[in-house]
Design a protein around this nucleic acid. Structure first.
Lengths: 211, 211
DNA sequence: TAGATTGTTAATCGATTAACAATC
DNA sequence: TAGATTGTTAATCGATTAACAATC
């Protein structure tokens, strides 16, 4: 079955939201409860979940812990992912230090850079290796995801080096459309600033904006 | 008129793409040329632009420099935006150092933090101030955008402090749905990793994925 | 003029929402 | 059983795409 991309994004949001409920000691939630917190419609929640199975009990709602497990299975965060950061600059350093990643089962196990000066150093306790060792270490360390945190000019080249390895997907922080057959998630920071810029201006002009 | 949100995002992509054409010395491009580079349909490009005016010449295409100017006007990057980063941790530091922001007219002019240890220091040449000075400095420095780069637990509190000032919009790096009437752009890093996780697993399972 | 490409309308596609029978 | 809430279908809404007359 064809699953809408927005549904996948929301699954991540449901997961987070359910964790809050769990922390609050809540055992059962309704689609209504979830929807309220996320500012969406209850039927959206039920529809999204229904793509993957029947997780609720009519009249009762969803068992929080059980649903957390189901969603973790669906999005694949029931296991730990080994991640390599490519680029030991500011962004790479920030991501290596970012506590949100290990907290969510994404473990940065290696950093790669082309600068021999940086190789051998440690960032957030993680060793920086030279790009030429990428293939070897990906196999050895069982790395499945790569983060592209290099300048725009180097991004496509890095992709080609990644494709030589068994890495299965890329989170791309560079503002370039990558040419690759691997799955890519773009995190486009300047685009977010530009969108905000548009929203501010048009709010000031009193124009209508969608969502 | 109601403009689709995806249209705004694409406007930013067109802008980038046109800059590449300009750098290559190209003077006129067709919707086809732009669409090819971005992997979308030419009619999408024309439709997006048509929300805002008639910028092309039939039979000829679009004047690259003129269209760059038009898009800059639309998304509001014909002027420089003064930006404050809230949170002088790793992420805040990375953003302060990120060359993509000033390059795109977003100038980080101040960093704010609650930690007295950090106040007075400089990051990427930008002074770190104490949160209690936010309101005063926002007025003095004419700051219009805030970047939330604080831990999840502090995010909503920061929003309330921002709302006391004349700041007009927020780029939010914390994984929390902010309650505010200001325009917010969320940059949800862990959600991107989770989406990639889903895509990898389902590609391996041979499932269909949308887009 | 002939060829090319726009701007726009209408058709299609996909995602969200309302409604409700099923059932805990 | 009565009340609540699911899972799912059908209706609606919104965004993308194809098609083509207008026109450079």
């Amino acid at each position: 079955m064809k699953i809408p991309k927005p549904t996948i994004k929301r699954l991540g949001l449901y997961y987070r939201c359910l964790n809050r409920f769990k922390d609050d000691g809540v055992n059962f939630v309704s689609s209504q409860d979830i929807a309220e917190r996320l500012n969406i419609k209850p039927s959206q929640v039920r529809k999204d979940l229904s793509y993957f199975g029947e997780f609720g009990k009519r009249g009762l709602g969803y068992n929080v812990k059980k649903l957390l497990g189901e969603i973790a299975d669906i999005i694949g965060i029931n296991k730990e992912w080994n991640v390599a950061i490519i680029g030991a600059g500011n962004l790479g350093t920030a991501l290596a230090n970012y506590p949100g990643l290990p907290k969510h089962k994404f473990k940065v196990v290696a950093i790669f850079d082309n600068d021999r000066e940086k190789v051998g150093k440690k960032i957030a306790g993680i060793t920086v290796y030279h790009m030429s060792d990428l293939k070897e270490l990906v196999e050895k360390m069982n790395i499945e995801m790569a983060v592209i945190a290099v300048p725009e000019s180097a991004a496509q080249l890095v992709v080609e080096q990644i494709e030589e390895t068994s890495i299965k997907g890329i989170v791309n922080f560079s503002p370039v459309k990558l040419r690759t057959s691997l799955p890519v998630e773009d995190v486009d920071i300047t685009l977010s600033f530009e969108t905000l810029s548009y929203m501010i201006i048009n709010r000031m002009l009193g124009n209508e904006i969608n969502e």
